[in-house]
Design a protein around this nucleic acid. Structure first.
Length: 894
RNA sequence: GGGCGAAUAGCUCAGCUGGUUCAGAGCGCCUGCCUUACACGCAGGAUGUCGGGGGUUCGAAUCCCUCUUCGCCCACCA
């Protein structure tokens, strides 16, 4: 730790070593049995488990950065902090990945058979399974890898079975014959949430169905003409006069030549189309209900891969659904039964994994009855137990719960948790057994049993994670200590898949919500506001960014570019533009630290506490007091911002403090003291290192690596101390120092005024000027002369009336005149114009201010405090204007 | 069809409870500087009808209405 620090911060040289050191020390693995002194419960975040085949993308980067900032913040605040990571077996997604791999070998999963295929998937995920967790380490994520789980682990499988059996015993899991969303490519059922509705431009075909007794027809409209092959009725509204006489009669279904009844049903909207609806119970959920009410037959005209089945006329059999659509329409047209075709926009479900258009399909599936589970989850929201950030997301949550439908949990896949249900193969017995343990024989008759072929929806294991990852149903110390957690960090599109369901499972199985704060961040998009995605090729690889700019730069850029609930826009074509600010800031910290550390000599005097060598208040210069006050204000601002999940504001507050205040002003101003030109070097060192230390700690949640690297080098630190468990800075009433803020502000103004004049008249940087300020100048300016001399490149600063008149003039906000003599070199016209513009600006301010204060309404209605402030402003502007106007007269400007 | 959000500098965005950051930050741009922490830097500078229109108010980027344009979520009118 004593090697000299390079002038340029090189993240890749230190990040991985620091991370390894953190992990070795177990800093992120809280001990469930350790006595916890603090009254508050531990702070727990469940990491959204990435898919086992996933590679880190920017969405993970954002999601996990937010979580890491929060967990590091709370850890430093002294709470036991557990961030529990895991990976998800991701049923469909993973099965698809491996199927694609097989396809490159010219094979399908059916060639391998179930057992060999599952073995193949296991082999694959054993390779890819923890890759993403290592990638998260590169981001600096302080998760507890020792507790990492996989949703197909033995423990979690145990929990899944327990949950299934309990729900079944409570009558909340049932098997039923219903219309579900079916993906004809993945060959499985999907839940409603997994069928993504998308607006598509389609058509509305108006078809004529002739009356069976002859003499006319009924027109029905459909967006899927091919389904007419399975029609078993036409429905009309019972009150619809147009069709009243027809109800109970029969129509001759064209193409298939079948007689179907006209039925009356309330579900029909008489105002839409012709007011008559074709009814296909096997292929439409609404039609299915109508069919049930009227005892209609269901004719399944499609195979699992969405081809026309044997139930349809032979000439259609085997046709793809879209080919069949064309063929059906063609026959209607040929028969003169196609009334018209209209363009029609409607929402069509797409498989969320392969984007194939889903087909409503009638089949036997397992469902969870959701209404009873939703009730406590909804109550918790209404009574304020759950806090959504941003708040409006709570409305989405509540609306979804209010309209909740039963959850189809069976999937016709091979990769996942097999449904724990066994069917007795003995005809006379045929017992169905739901069991926690594998069944060898029928418990009733001892006959052969066969396990349900299907697996469970991936999300059925995910929704248990807040307690299954802590060994539930076993009552371990982990479960007792770390359930419930506090915050979940997710993307809005995951609310229904995961967040709401975890809350429901939490209430149902644990009697308590698994977390109370729900932080929903935005989406990472490119500059055209398109979601970053592999298919669009507009993604940014977070690891490449880490490689080039460091994890801290990546994290800072993500955090700084994101207000609560807004998207993060990054430019894939210009990484520099997106990540340079973070890189630059890391480098700034590095160099500020380098400077401060290299100037320390000997022990640092403490700023507070009962020490013999404590820095006394009367030893502090104005600048010392000022930076201490700014530091204190920053502690308040940043802490509050973190608490309110306003991470961008926390980052901005520390950025301002470190860069603008500490580096640009304080460090520059104490240089003479450090170099021995001025007394008080020991105080300056003490103030610099201790305020810098506070800055490092405030920033550590966002930029863990560079802050750790610097913090560890502060002399007197124990070898094994880590900033990640250093105490969070506390604000101190006594440090708030409004006088220092005001007075040093004037010094800054003075320096700015002189610099402005120097720049205006192109004074060579090497040349010093003289400066004269009004005799009545704030005493702070006298006291801080060395600062002014140095930072404004002034050789002498005098007080009183200047002997000369020609030069640059300015005025401070308290009315103090400033004069920089520039001799004959100055262009008088230029100075007159410069001052004139300034006087004009003040004129306008004074004018509007006078109008405001002349307004009786304002004076009487606005709070006295506000009026007082406005009066002060007016006086100050008048003073400034007066001073400058006199200068103009003196110079003979017109 | 219902609900929600956004529009502020060339770009990406802050601006919370109307008046103490009130018109801001970073990037980019212009000028001058390799000043012994940092050129990934320092100093100075330019750039805005706060999307349009109405309203409430003593006072509006901020609250209300409306229009326009984008975006998101939900939805069994076939």
């Amino acid at each position: 730790m004593t090697e000299p620090l390079a002038p340029q911060y090189n993240p890749s040289a230190i990040e991985s070593a620091l991370y390894a050191w953190w992990e070795e020390r177990g800093l992120f693995s809280p001990d469930a049995s350790a006595p916890s002194a603090e009254a508050r419960r531990p702070y727990v975040i469940m990491m959204p488990p990435p898919n086992v085949t996933a590679a880190l993308h920017m969405g993970h980067g954002l999601n996990n950065t937010v979580q890491d900032v929060l967990i590091r913040f709370e850890r430093m605040r002294g709470r036991q902090a557990l961030w529990l990571p895991g990976t998800d077996h991701a049923g469909i997604a993973t099965q698809n990945v491996v199927e694609r791999l097989l396809a490159t070998e010219g094979q399908t999963r059916f060639d391998l058979g179930r057992e060999a295929f599952v073995a193949r998937v296991w082999a694959h995920v054993r390779e890819t399974g923890t890759a993403i967790l290592s990638q998260l380490r590169a981001l600096g994520c302080s998760a507890d890898w020792s507790r990492a789980y996989f949703t197909l682990d033995e423990g979690l499988s145990h929990a899944v079975r327990e949950a299934f059996v309990q729900l079944h015993d409570q009558g909340l899991v049932y098997r039923g014959h219903y219309i579900i969303n079916w993906c004809p490519r993945c060959l499985t059922a999907l839940s409603n949430e997994e069928a993504e509705k998308e607006e598509v431009d389609g058509h509305l075909w108006h078809l004529r169905y002739p009356l069976a007794r002859g003499g006319g027809h009924v027109v029905v409209a459909t967006t899927r003409p091919e389904t007419m092959l399975g029609d078993t009725a036409v429905a009309v509204h019972p009150e619809d006069e147009r069709y009243r006489s027809m109800v109970g009669t029969e129509l001759r279904l064209p193409v298939v030549d079948r007689l179907i009844p006209v039925v009356a049903d309330d579900a029909v909207d008489p105002a839409f189309g012709s007011g008559a609806v074709k009814v296909t119970p096997a292929h439409d959920p609404a039609d299915f209900e109508i069919g049930r009410r009227h005892n209609l037959a269901s004719i399944d005209i499609m195979t699992p891969d969405a081809r026309i089945s044997l139930a349809a006329p032979e000439r259609f059999q085997g046709l793809d659904r879209y080919e069949a659509r064309r063929a059906v329409v063609a026959e209607f047209e040929a028969a003169g039964l196609l009334e018209k075709v209209e363009p029609h926009q409607h929402a069509v479900g797409h498989c969320y994994r392969c984007h194939t258009v889903v087909e409503p399909r009638l089949s036997d599936q397992w469902f969870v009855r959701m209404a009873p589970l939703a009730r406590p989850a909804l109550d918790a929201y209404r009574n304020g137990t759950l806090q959504f950030i941003p708040e409006r997301r709570g409305d989405d949550y509540a609306a979804w719960l209010e309209g909740i439908r039963d959850w189809c949990i069976s999937r016709q896949l091979w990769w996942g948790h097999r449904i724990p249900v066994w069917y007795c193969q003995v005809k006379e017995c045929s017992l169905t057994t739901v069991s926690r343990d594998d069944l060898a024989v029928c418990p009733a008759c001892g006959g052969e049993v066969h396990q349900d072929e299907d697996v469970l929806d991936t999300w059925f294991s995910s929704w248990l994670v807040p307690f299954s990852s802590l060994s539930w149903p076993d009552h371990t110390e982990d479960l007792t200590r770390f359930y419930p957690g506090h915050t979940i960090v997710s993307a809005p599109e995951i609310i229904f898949f995961w967040v709401s369901r975890m809350i429901m499972a939490g209430f149902h199985f644990m009697n308590e919500a698994p977390f109370t704060s729900i932080y929903l961040h935005g989406t990472v998009r490119d500059t055209q506001h398109r979601k970053m995605s592999k298919s669009l090729g507009n993604g940014i690889d977070p690891l490449e960014v880490v490689d080039r700019y460091g994890a801290d730069a990546l994290r800072y850029s993500l955090v700084a570019g994101m207000a609560v609930g807004t998207d993060v826009i990054l430019d894939p074509g210009d990484l520099e533009a997106s990540f340079a600010p973070g890189r630059n800031f890391a480098n700034k910290l590095w160099n500020a630290g380098r400077f401060i550390l290299s100037n320390l000599d000997g022990p640092v005097r403490p700023l507070a506490g009962k020490h013999r060598n404590v820095v006394r208040r009367d030893e502090l210069s104005l600048a010392d007091r000022w930076i201490i006050a700014r530091c204190d204000a920053t502690v308040r601002e940043a802490t509050e911002a973190y608490e309110r999940f306003r991470l961008n504001e926390a980052a901005a507050a520390v950025y301002r403090f470190v860069w603008s205040d500490l580096a640009d002003w304080y460090i520059e101003q104490i240089k003479p003291r450090l170099y021995g030109d001025q007394p008080g070097g020991d105080v300056a060192r003490a103030v610099a290192i201790q305020t810098f230390d506070v800055g490092l700690r405030l920033l550590h949640p966002v930029m863990p690596f560079v802050t750790e690297a610097l913090w560890r080098r502060v002399p007197g630190r124990p070898e094994d101390a880590s900033i990640s468990v250093a105490p969070w800075p506390t604000a101190d009433e006594r440090a708030a120092d409004p006088d220092a803020l005001r007075d040093f502000g004037l010094v800054q103004e003075l320096i700015g005024a002189i610099r402005g004049i120097r720049a205006e008249y192109a004074i060579q940087p090497g040349n010093s000027v003289r400066a004269v300020v009004g005799a009545g100048a704030n005493t702070a300016i006298r006291d801080e002369q060395p600062t002014v001399l140095r930072l404004a490149k002034v050789s002498t600063l005098t007080f009183g009336e200047p002997a000369e008149r020609v030069g640059g003039h300015a005025v401070l906000s308290d009315g103090t005149p400033v004069f920089v003599p520039l001799g004959d070199t100055i262009d008088l016209g230029r100075e007159c114009a410069r001052l004139g513009a300034e006087v004009d600006r003040l004129d306008r301010l004074v004018d509007s201010q006078e109008r405001k204060l002349g307004n009786q309404q304002f004076v009487s209605r606005a709070p006295a405090e506000v009026v007082e402030r406005e009066r002060d402003k007016l006086m100050s502007w008048r003073d400034q204007r007066g001073v400058l106007a006199r200068k103009r007269e003196m110079l003979g400007c017109h």
